[in-house]
Write a protein that binds this DNA or RNA. Structure first.
Length: 958
RNA sequence: GCCCGGAUGGUGGAAUCGGUAGACACGCAGGACUUAAAAUCCUGUGGCCAUUGAGGCCGUGUGGGUUCAAGUCCCACUCCGGGUACCA
């Protein structure tokens, strides 16, 4: 029949080839079956390959997809590659190698690694975002954004042609759009505008538009970055400094969808934490906008405030350093000082700005504005605690009720006027009271009102006096969509005399040209600008920016439905059939990037009639991170007699010298028993270490066996005589710590099935947890035990055809119920335990009944598909476990007729007694009170109370 | 600072509705098999005090509360992880 021992290498190789050759995972639309769409966040194929942390989510989703298939669903479970991006391009800059080449090499390696784990992907549907056949459609969607505007009346995107028709008929007076305020014009005025003027106006409406704005400029990468690509003032990729810079850029008007993106969160099954991150990122806050007139000027400054109720407490105004009115309002006396301050503020890197957050800085502009109610003159300050990019870039400062304004007022000696009273207030001169509690005082017509009522009253009054109105504001900014980089989608845009024109879809894709150098030009133009013949076309000059990494990933889930389609992004019937992604698995780090943009694009494609749904991912699960073990050797902080001095960790612990030593991470490849408490470096390991770190060739090593220098170690006869214990800690798995565990190695040593089981067994899917290769022994033993239980010494299945006994059926059906429930709630770690428990029971029962073992194998198949196929086939089946349906749970095998009751005294279990399930509580009580242990505890007294919960517990209160 | 999570043996973790805390594994200790090792199998394994037919006390981050009964519910706090940051 085959080998008698469990040879995972041969078995896994065989079945992987088998699945591939008969296209076992290929799916097509089947109206006769319900569909289920399981999607993994596709990886960026980096040069480092996969480590054991990456497949965690893939394994979980693979289990679900195999399970759903067994339950009769037509399962779409594809995989592809997010293939445009910075690392391949940075590598190209260093080596001159075309990023396409690097990328396809990396993809090949990823593919091999993934295949080895035995995933049920339909690879015929693979997509790569960097391929022209794919990015043609990314460009096409960009074209849709370009040719649409957001109609606030209809609350949806509409075609720009409809808007132009309105302009031609009645101008823009009745148009309400999402975008910057636009001067009113009539139909005849519109018709008189030339092409350039018309386009300039349309840019205010288009959902993809060009704008001159402050952007995050990263000098080292030579590109603009989106807000979410900047972390702590440094670029997410590479950690380079980022500064604010004004540039002309493509933007997508995601802000038009802010409210719908917020509301949409209510109807999707995502973790509360991701939803919360998105809510915060969108940052909706409602308040009022108020216009302030400037003394001796026609200028007006508009502020946004969430606390219009405190208007009477406003004692000054603050505007952002980048505010456009500064040159107009600044007094001659203050001009020099203001210009200096503004220059300083604008030149700060994000990092500097953030580190100075708690320092109060600002400058008086010399201008005053008029309080709209009292007519008081309020000084106008310029300070960088007011952000140009939020609200109107100007605030009315209310120092009594805003801590930032309070700090500013204290610093500049400005008056602090209390307008809200509340018992919790001590003294607003020393500390502001920011809470929205309390009653209005010193506020004219608002006096006596509660804060919330006062806000409403004030908004009404502002409207009546025509100096302000209720306003909703968002933190969310329009998404910068241009990158000055090579390795991305080119824009389907040609400039004709500076006017952007969309290239017709029949001419797509606009392919990336070959260039001499991938280096940023330094002038802020992309490397594409140097492709002279490509840029200059008969009809104009091409846009040379490329799209950001998230462009291709915002819609890739659609392309899987119909990946080869040449005439549309996907066939409408296929879109209707497959619909939303039912289960989306991926990391939480994309909360404000990919996961928000994909929702935005989906809503837009819904508006334009391409999709019948407006949320892409019905359910989202964020798998946790798998951490590695970092192995350190302990180096004495101060040299001893001029030499570096290492000491075995066990000795440091013994001597309590932890403080004297620092940790030096070493590659786990030279550590013995890595991951264990007692992990150590032997003679050969330490010699290898010294070889790699010649700076430590003079070092001294103190171990239990003695103290050695390099030469003495080399002379040791026996490798085991030297033992330098390491200090282990948990941390990120990365090249830097030399602690990356490659799934290929695990598959080689233990097999893909063991890897799959072990990753699931480690703990709850969504939690972060440390990887410890030694723990895999547990699941590996389980697989071998299963093998030995089914396969005899000749390699044949040793199966009984007899009717299974009651105990075996009970064990199996407990297992069926638990596994089914656990998969449904994504509790895979407990599922693996359940398999172990069930197998232990079956071995105990010596159960080899076909009916029991076959069903057990079918349950196991989604988790460990290779061994399941092998055992299934050795049990005499010609077909695959993939085509079998999920075992049915039958309650009747679990029904008991008695229950072992825990008998507790004052809530602590002291004894056990078995009663038939139909015993009445009275009978139980009587029997319990006669029990030896209970009598002992009662010690002759009467129990105060006896609680009998039928079928559960008995508690005797003494 | 603010917003979310979380804290259970030496380790990863389990415990459905408030009802036998520590399932299942790892590790460790002892034993069987073996010339030996590996593999496999068996036994034990929360702590403390006892024990040889004896059991008891403590125990789910800390302190309080509700309850016949709390890892689970309520209040206060400590620590750890993640997100976010002058957002008016």
């Amino acid at each position: 029949m085959g080998r008698a021992d469990y040879d995972h290498r041969e078995i896994e190789r065989f079945w992987q080839k088998n699945w591939q050759s008969r296209e076992a995972y290929k799916v097509s639309e089947d109206p006769g079956k319900p569909k289920y769409y399981v999607l993994d966040m596709f990886p960026y194929p980096s040069g480092a390959g996969l480590h054991v942390g990456h497949p965690l989510g893939y394994i979980a989703s693979d289990i679900v997809s195999r399970y759903k298939r067994a339950r009769g669903f037509n399962v779409l479970h594809p995989m592809g590659f997010d293939a445009f991006g910075l690392p391949a391009e940075q590598y190209a800059i260093q080596t001159g190698k075309h990023p396409a080449e690097t990328t396809s090499e990396n993809i090949l390696r990823y593919r091999q690694q993934l295949d080895r784990i035995g995933f049920a992907y339909d690879w015929s549907r693979e997509v790569r975002t960097c391929e022209p056949a794919y990015y043609k459609w990314t460009q096409w969607i960009f074209g849709r954004f370009f040719t649409h505007w957001y109609n606030l009346r209809a609350n949806r995107a509409e075609h720009i042609d409809n808007l132009i028709a309105i302009f031609e008929n009645e101008g823009n007076v009745n148009v309400s759009h999402h975008g910057p305020e636009t001067a009113k014009f009539t139909a005849s005025e519109w018709l008189d505008y030339d092409k350039t003027q018309k386009e300039l106006i349309l840019q205010n409406y288009r959902l993809a538009y060009l704008a001159e704005t402050t952007v995050n400029w990263c000098e080292a990468l030579g590109t603009v970055l989106a807000n979410e690509e900047v972390k702590d003032g440094l670029s997410e990729r590479g950690g380079h400094p980022v500064v604010k810079k004004t540039m002309r850029q493509w933007f997508l008007r995601i802000t038009a969808y802010a409210d719908r993106l917020l509301e949409g969160l209510e109807k999707i099954d995502w973790s509360e934490s991701i939803k919360e991150i998105q809510r915060n990122w969108i940052g909706r806050s409602s308040g009022a906008s108020i216009h302030f007139r400037i003394l001796n000027s026609d200028a007006q400054i508009e502020v946004f405030t969430t606390r219009p109720d405190t208007l009477f407490g406003s004692t000054f105004m603050v505007i952002a350093p980048e505010h456009e009115l500064i040159p107009e309002i600044v007094s001659e006396a203050q001009r020099i000082e203001v210009e200096t301050y503004v220059q300083q503020a604008l030149n700060k890197t994000e990092r500097e700005r953030m580190s100075e957050v708690k320092q109060v800085s600002g400058v008086f502009s010399g201008a005053y504005c008029l309080h709209p109610f009292t007519g008081d003159n309020l000084p106008v300050y310029i300070a960088d605690y007011v952000l140009g990019g939020y609200g109107t870039g100007a605030i009315m400062a209310v120092p009594a009720h805003d801590s930032r304004d309070h700090a500013f007022a204290r610093h500049f000696g400005l008056p602090i006027v209390q307008v809200v009273d509340d018992p919790a207030i001590k003294d607003v001169q020393t500390e502001s009271f920011d809470s929205k509690e309390g009653t209005m005082i010193n506020s004219d017509f608002l006096n006596g009102l509660h804060v919330s009522n006062a806000i409403d009253q004030m908004i009404k009054e502002l409207g009546r006096r025509n100096i302000g109105e209720g306003r909703v504001n968002y933190k969310l900014r329009d998404a910068g969509f241009g990158r000055q980089r090579y390795w991305g989608e080119p824009f389907p845009i040609i400039y004709q005399n500076g006017t952007p024109t969309l290239i017709p879809s029949s001419e797509l894709p606009v392919r990336l040209p070959d260039v001499q150098s991938y280096k940023p030009t330094g002038s802020g133009a992309s490397p594409l600008a140097s492709a002279h013949d490509w840029v200059h076309t008969p009809s104009g000059e091409r846009e040379t920016d490329t799209m950001p990494g998230w462009a291709g990933s915002s819609w890739y889930f659609l392309r899987y439905m119909d990946p080869q389609n040449r005439s549309s992004i996907a066939d409408p019937d296929k879109i209707i059939y497959w619909g939303q992604v039912d289960l989306y698995m991926g990391g939480a780090e994309h909360a404000t990037g990919h996961l928000l943009y994909a929702r935005f694009w989906t809503k837009f494609l819904f508006d334009t009639g391409i999709l019948p749904f407006d949320e892409p991912f019905a359910k989202l699960i964020n798998q946790g991170m798998i951490q590695g073990v970092i192995e350190n050797i302990c180096l004495r902080k101060e040299k001893l007699n001029g030499s570096n001095y290492f000491k075995s960790y066990e000795l440091i612990r013994r001597d309590g010298e932890e403080d004297l030593y620092t940790k030096l991470p070493v590659s786990i490849s030279i550590v013995q028993d890595y991951g264990k408490d007692s992990s150590y470096i032997d003679k050969l390991g330490i010699l290898k270490f010294i070889e790699e770190r010649p700076d430590f060739s003079d070092a001294i090593f103190e171990t239990v066996a003695g103290t050695f220098n390099r030469l003495q170690i080399a002379e040791l006869q026996d490798n085991s005589n030297f033992r330098l214990e390491t200090r282990s800690e948990t941390g990120k798995m990365s090249k830097r710590w030399g602690n990356v565990v490659n799934p290929d190695d695990v598959c080689e040593d233990y097999g893909a099935d063991a890897l799959r089981l072990y990753e699931m067994f480690l703990g709850p899917l969504e939690d972060s947890k440390p990887w410890n290769t030694h723990g895999i022994d547990g699941v590996y033993r389980f697989l071998r035990k299963l093998w030995k239980h089914v396969i005899d010494a000749n390699g044949d299945a040793q199966i009984s055809e007899a009717q299974p006994g009651k105990e075996a059926l009970k064990s199996l059906h407990k297992c069926i119920r638990k596994i089914t429930e656990d998969i449904e709630k994504y509790s895979f770690n407990t599922a693996v335990s359940t398999f172990m428990i069930c197998l232990n029971e079956l071995i105990e029962l010596k159960c080899r009944d076909r009916e029991i073992l076959e069903q057990f194998i079918l349950l196991l198949a989604p988790f460990a598909p290779h061994i399941s196929e092998e055992l299934w086939s050795r049990m005499g089946h010609q077909n695959s476990v993939l085509d079998e349906s999920w075992p049915e749970f039958n309650e009747q095998y679990l029904t008991e007729d008695s229950k072992v009751y825990p008998i507790s005294i004052n809530g602590k279990t002291r004894a056990q007694m078995e009663f038939p399930l139909d015993t009445t509580p009275d009978e139980i009580e009587k029997a319990v009170l006669a029990h030896e242990t209970v009598l002992k505890w009662l010690d002759g007294k009467q129990p105060r109370k006896v609680i009998v919960v039928p079928g559960r517990i008995v508690n005797v209160v003494i």
